[in-house]
Amino acid sequence: MNQQKLSAERLLVYIVLLAGGILMTLPLFWAIFTSFKTAAEAMQTPPSLFPNEWLIDNYKKLFVELNFGTYLRNTLVLVAFSFLGLFINMMAGYGFAKFKFKNKEKIFYLVLATMMIPGQATMIPNYLILNKMGLTNTMAGIILPGLAGAFTIFLFRQFMETIPDDLIEASRIDGAGNIRIFMQIVAPICKPIIAVQAILGFIHAWNSFLWPLIVANSEDLYTLGVGLSLLKGQNVSDFALQMTGSSLMIVPVIILFLFCQKYIVEGFTTSGLK
């Protein structure tokens, strides 16, 4: 009797989770399926789940008629520089973890305090600062402000504090300089955290929107996110094309997620990113 009741309950959990899971991913699949439809089919009633014919014309249009090739290239440049940012944060983490210096605690708290300053509050002053530096409407202006991040520095510091001092001292006695110790001893030990942060950095750069939107005046500098919002404004009723642009942004990240799920979930949870 009890066994039966339990299995009924179990069945219910399975059904609810399955239905919920389908509902959660439906908008994503709806967008992907629609991207292969014609503009007319995307507006027909009743709507079709799968396209009548799987057409890649919309994707061609993004790259041939519209500038998505350029947007993609710019986004990939941002991704590449996010790895430079990762390196800068890793260096700072090492500096705070393994050196003793005056006011270290105070400086580190100042670094942490920057986590309380959201990008939405600094967009106006940052724009004015970049304008003074002559960096508005340049790639450098888009890249520079995002190169350092307090939370990544914090995570690297936490991780590096667990590296034994003896290991570093031994290399120093063997005649290795600071840079060599960092590159050949410390960096290899940090591989797991580098992997997590690199994936998060990729997603963050891939999705970047607000800052490029503000700094870039010309389409040559637009990222995929900015290009997509422009596309929506200019093709108000071509939903198939809108879904194509969206799918282009969503699908690579989902594929990355499916392969590196463990890293991403861990990384997101520890960093509080959303």
Partner: peptide
């Protein structure tokens, strides 16, 4: 899955 997607694309969808 929805958590990793970008707000911009999701807003369009």
């Amino acid at each position: 899955m929805p958590s990793v997607t970008t707000s911009v694309a999701i807003a369009v969808v």
